[in-house]
């Protein structure tokens, strides 16, 4: 249930941004979430619905961009998207791979009036 903490943080961050733009209502929030975070969209939407009630965020649309897991080979520096963790480097066959994306947990943008 980390979705609850994640949503709490999203709401706090957006609420603190609203006065800067004189917004009284938020229409949409775009998130970038890495696959490794194992966020369950339904749980996130449900938590948002509960926690945003009575705030300027109530009713806002949540858009999620899923960021795939990308690895970089320690041997040849080749970068590739992991379809499965069993994969070795597609270029040289090395099995030591550093993860370079897939852990994102970001608010990309939001839309308000």
């Amino acid at each position: 249930m980390h979705e609850l903490s994640i949503v709490q943080n999203i709401i706090t961050i957006i609420l603190s941004e609203l006065p800067k733009y004189n917004f009284s209502k938020v229409q949409s929030i775009s998130l970038r979430i890495g696959v490794m975070r194992q966020v369950v969209p339904e749980a996130l939407f449900f938590a948002f619905e509960c926690l945003s009630k009575g705030t300027p965020l109530e009713g806002a649309e949540i858009k999620i961009e899923n960021i795939p897991i990308t690895g970089r080979c320690r041997n040849c520096r080749h970068e590739f998207i992991f379809e499965s963790w069993q994969e070795n480097c597609a270029s040289c066959g090395e099995n030591q791979i550093d993860i370079i994306s897939g852990k994102e947990l970001e608010i990309a943008e939001f839309e308000g009036t």
């Binding site: 994640i6 999203i10 733009y21």
Partner: peptide, 14 residues
């Protein structure tokens, strides 16, 4: 109006 933020959601904890 769209606002670009690019903020770590867990920034307070960080």
């Amino acid at each position: 109006m769209k606002v670009s933020l690019v903020t770590n959601i867990l920034q307070v904890n960080e």
